[in-house]
């Protein structure tokens, strides 16, 4: 499961929707195995497009769960036009690319901070199914 996907996933339990603690899920850093896939090519246009939809505070939380506390505290504000990106902005985008799209959690577990339900990631695929008493 790519790091970017952690920014999309909340707890499946609908009762948790009224809580602010159902997103992002809390990742257990000691049990998450990370892999980098450098074959995934850098496409600044796509990242610029997706940046709007990213919840930065959730990126920071999940990165910290997984042991990375070096991210900027605020979402980078970038020039929308790819051709006008400064060198510094290019570097930021490349770092984002490495984090969001090249980094995957191949094995691991995560928990809803509201209800405490635990979800697993096996072979890169997160399993978000629920037992009957939570469904």
């Amino acid at each position: 499961m790519k790091f970017l996907t952690t920014n999309f996933l909340k707890c499946s339990v609908s009762a948790c929707d009224i809580s602010n603690d159902n997103f992002p899920l809390q990742y257990d850093g000691s049990k998450c195995k990370l892999v980098q896939n450098e074959d995934i090519e850098f496409r600044p246009e796509f990242l610029l497009n997706i940046l709007d939809r990213i919840e930065w505070s959730a990126i920071l939380q999940v990165a910290a769960d997984l042991g990375n506390t070096s991210l900027p505290p605020n979402k980078p504000k970038l020039n929308i036009n790819v051709d006008e990106l400064t060198e510094e902005e290019q570097i930021i985008l490349r770092d984002l690319h490495t984090l969001l799209l090249q980094t995957s959690i191949v094995e691991g577990e995560m928990k809803c901070k509201n209800c405490g339900h635990v979800y697993y990631i096996k072979n890169s695929i997160p399993n978000l199914l629920l037992p009957p008493h939570l469904a």
Partner: peptide, 11 residues
């Protein structure tokens, strides 16, 4: 993702 569409986890 292994997920039930009707118990959707996409925020």
């Amino acid at each position: 993702m292994t997920m039930d569409f009707t118990h959707n986890s996409l925020r």
